[in-house]
Computed example of a mutant assay.
Amino acid sequence: GLCVNDIIVSGAKPLFFLDYFSCSSLDLDEATDVVRGIAEGCKQANCSLIGGETAEMPGLYQPGDYDLAGFSVGIADRDKIIDGSSVRVGNKIIGLASSGLHSNGFSLVRKIIFEDQGLTVDDEVAELGCTVGEELIKPTKIYVRSVLGVLNSYPINSLVHNTGGGFIDNIPRVLPKGCRAVIDKESWEKPPIFAFLQEKGQVPEAEMYRTFNMGIGMMAVVDEADAESAMRHFKAMGEEPFLIGEVLAAREGESQVVINGLEEN
């Protein structure tokens, strides 16, 4: 999910994916489940799974442990690459709902849930409506079909894959000098896992928005005139879009990301 979502922020189309699976001793059932999941992700991203590598290294991995990595390659017309240079003051920011944590912030998640709270993957958590394990392994949402579908009909000035660094660190990458993004944090519904982590880990709200996606996995910056139509198109493609902010002028030295109502401590 992370690989192909990173590719589409440039307006590129994912072509293929390769995986790397390493372990102490190969468990065929376990490896089959992993590859089946990878194949499903490739179907959702309309890209091919063309190969990979499987390695057994008993001197490095403990029995039952495995390591999984992968990479993807995409293609785009040079003159159609999205680089944020078209962003202008007055543009609107559309946020697409995430499926949960996606794949970021897990060092902090593990500390809060397993070390501080003493929970196990099998423990039911009322606030989450599921077990810890079920929440943590929710697949990262893949936005390929919806983003490329909207791009076919409307210009998108920039795209933000909201991963490590959250809103605070990711949005500035696609903003030209002299622009800032103002986000309304009350404009979308947040999955309960984030309130759970903030409360149990006593994490400052500002740090939550710098570490997690907070319920928004992808952002699209569009012209104001296209915002409502693009949102309807995203919804028709199966996404849950929210109008979460806008681009305003930034003075010298002013922060490029402002989240209204954010508690710093």
Rank of each mutant, 00 (worst) to 15 (best):
C3N: 10
N5P: 11
N5D: 14
I7D: 05
V9Y: 06
P14S: 01
L15Q: 10
F17H: 15
L18K: 10
D19G: 08
Y20H: 15
C23F: 04
L28A: 14
T32P: 00
I38P: 00
I38Y: 02
I38H: 07
Q44E: 10
Q44T: 12
N46C: 03
C47D: 08
G52C: 02
M57V: 10
P58W: 03
Y61T: 08
G64P: 01
G74E: 01
D77A: 06
I82M: 14
G84D: 05
G90F: 06
G90T: 09
K92L: 12
I94P: 11
L96A: 08
L101A: 07
H102M: 01
K111I: 05
K111N: 15
I112T: 13
I112Q: 03
D116R: 15
Q117T: 03
D123E: 12
E124P: 09
V125C: 09
E127Y: 01
P139M: 01
V144H: 08
R145V: 06
R145H: 12
S146T: 02
V150H: 06
N152R: 12
S153I: 13
S158L: 00
V160M: 06
N162I: 14
G165K: 02
G165C: 01
I171K: 02
I171S: 00
R173V: 11
L175F: 01
C179G: 04
D184R: 10
F194I: 06
F196E: 04
Q198T: 06
E199K: 13
N213M: 07
G215M: 02
V221R: 07
V222G: 13
S229R: 15
S229N: 11
A230C: 11
H233F: 12
H233P: 06
K235L: 12
K235H: 11
E240T: 15
G245D: 01
V247W: 05
A250G: 10
R251I: 04
V258H: 13
I259H: 05
L262A: 05
